[in-house]
Design a protein around this nucleic acid. Structure first.
Lengths: 148, 148
DNA sequence: TGATTGTAGTGCGATATCGTACTATATGAT
DNA sequence: ATCATATAGTACGATATCGCACTACAATCA
């Protein structure tokens, strides 16, 4: 491993970290007060991939401890975006159901991001983004498969 | 803005977020107990770009509120990695000085990451990473310049 | 069946991050 | 010089995230 190579990985992960932070801040500025990306992400996940999942299943999808997901889901429940129902197949567990308010929240949040993405696309076309997404997916899969 | 373009940006930021989370977890597994990436990052910043900076300057470099940096620096001070000294040019402010222990901490943390990067470079060569870093920098600069 | 082991979710405590408000000092206008 | 405004740092409270430990239920095995 050359120093140059090591430095390149450092730069890469550094940029990833900063972009993650900046995009999160941008996104949260478009969400209703008090709601965070971590809240939206779960609702978005349920809308896209289907609800009726267990908290543990969702926690694993987001790579967060189940205690964190318990907390996040309690917030979503407080906002009326999801409902927790008993799992008929397993008395220990619950199923997370989206409500109409939850679906509306997801749709509105995405709509609010439209103008930002439009503006960004004028400076950095989606075509250029599309060129690097595959490698990012590869890196993500590698890291996912090699978790400590 | 086509839906396809919007979806591409979503995928991009989604991958960024996940990679950020996974790489943070990986890195923190290599740090001494109780120390987080947020701690290392500040020490690393001071080693690379020079110490004797003010807390506010560092906070802005990391795009975090100054209250967060106050807290982070207090942790680093508790570990003996930095010292806070009065700023001779401004009675309101302080300067952050690295200690020998701080430099050692940074060097050891980087060394510990070496094997991980070596392993990763076997699957995803640094050359491929190098090809996309410039665009990531562009995105980062764009987001930085268009903060809400 | 009963005992053991494993799993889903939660309660609790610790730390990180952030927003608001405050203090002390600096800057600029008059 | 004085006053108004701006800035650096901190105190404090709120929320997010996480690890540990516990409970309830499930699965397995004797």
């Amino acid at each position: 491993m050359h120093d140059d190579a090591a430095r390149m990985y450092f730069r890469f992960f550094n940029e990833i970290g900063i972009i993650g932070q900046l995009s999160r801040a941008l996104f949260e500025a478009r969400l209703p007060d008090g709601l965070l990306v971590s809240h939206f992400s779960v609702v978005n996940h349920l809308v896209r991939l289907g609800d009726g999942r267990t908290p543990l299943n969702i926690a694993q999808a987001f790579q967060v401890p189940k205690t964190t997901m318990t907390h996040t889901l309690s917030i979503l429940e407080k906002h009326g975006f999801v409902e927790m129902v008993p799992n008929p197949d397993d008395g220990r567990s619950k199923l997370v159901k989206l409500t109409d308010a939850g679906r509306a929240f997801q749709g509105e949040a995405i709509e609010r991001l439209g103008p930002d993405m439009l503006t960004m696309s004028e400076e950095i076309p989606a075509k250029r983004i599309a060129e690097i997404v595959p490698l990012l997916e590869e890196v993500r899969q590698y890291l996912d498969a090699n978790r400590p």
